[in-house]
Design a protein around this nucleic acid. Structure first.
Lengths: 199, 199
DNA sequence: ACCTGAACACCGTTCAAGT
DNA sequence: ACCTGAACACCGTTCAAGT
């Protein structure tokens, strides 16, 4: 199913990440085996340890890939969006939900509890960058007067929670039947009401 | 650390569930081993298979425990809450977030993608019961005129997403620093605005 | 630097057999 | 019914040794 052997000219690390993501997507996290990965890539089972000290280290690196990917996706989505907060929010919501559905297992990994205890500096930083990107949207809205004033805890957390919750539920197929595969307009409208200036 | 042996007089099933939840909480899902569980309980490593055909079956049963627990918690929280929608929403939010933080690994399990493919009839039913319990809150609010009219997709999904998102983020320690350990008043206020009747 | 081969201490699952 | 013991085909991790 893959080029017989020797196909990685020194890019075993990248090949491992790509292979791990594939099996994660296709067979779930429980099926991910370092030895099988090595076999498929035509290297010895001990080779991966040169690039990832641990199975967990591979998973952490994969989560990092996820954060980078959603950040990038979001950035280009926002570049193509209009100027109003409503437009930008809608674009952001769309891209997050799309990412979540297309990368359900990765999203699960990104927010599984494991890597909280300072698993990797890089991972924490990437997660924070992504969160701040969402918060920026709110700050923009506040500057243009479309979002109520106040510290970010006041409304930013609400918006982020709503988007993350919806994305998560959609990804894990946990939305009630009546609400599946619906477009996001109603959700965005609900969020906008939550954000609306005071009077 | 536990009664040496023979302590399960026919309640191996319950003992396995309890043990599994403990190690899940204390050492994470990756550390859960059927053989170790059996060892700790003083039975042979093949004994668990009489009660759970599979490791996955044990995990499914554990997720079911989680849905039952949050449902029950929520029910008593709502019984003790006031009559207004604002009060009931606040009570519901509080109990969900508390559950999430106290049972982070269980929550992860409940909403991991695995059991979507009709893993177990019971599990699907429990998950649905819990979702409907949340939706009932909204319907109540609509009846009392505190929540805008319309089908549940309109606002119920928003409320559920917000609560689930916040609970999830809190459980996985992914809330931005400024927003951690804060009380829920601001979040509830944001949700209430999203729910408010039209004029 | 990057990888191999062998070794170690584990796994989950199955299945005959015991009580 | 409920459990045991042995067996099978896997794991992750480590470490000397090779190129």
């Amino acid at each position: 199913m893959q080029t017989p052997r020797r196909y990685h000219h020194g890019d075993l690390r990248a090949a491992l990440l790509a292979g791990a993501e594939d099996t994660l997507r296709e067979k779930g996290p429980a099926a991910l085996s370092l030895r099988e990965l090595a076999r498929d890539l035509g290297v010895s089972h001990a080779a991966p340890s040169r690039h990832f000290k641990d199975k967990q280290a591979l998973l952490d690196a994969l989560a990092l890939v996820g954060f980078d990917r959603i950040s990038r996706t979001m950035t280009t989505a926002l570049e193509e969006a209009g100027e109003s907060f409503a437009d930008r929010l809608a674009a952001g919501a769309r891209s997050y939900v799309d990412f979540a559905v297309a990368n359900a297992e990765l999203l699960d990994l990104m927010y599984s509890i494991k890597h909280t205890p300072e698993a990797s500096e890089e991972l924490g930083a990437a997660s924070q960058r992504w969160t701040e990107q969402m918060m920026n949207l709110i700050v923009e809205g506040q500057r243009s007067g479309e979002v109520r004033e106040g510290p970010l805890e006041r409304v930013g957390i609400g918006v982020f929670s709503t988007l993350h919750g919806y994305a998560t539920l959609a990804a894990s197929d946990s939305l009630p039947e009546e609400m599946r595969g619906q477009d996001l307009d109603e959700l965005v409208a609900y969020i906008l009401r939550g954000c609306a200036p005071e009077a």
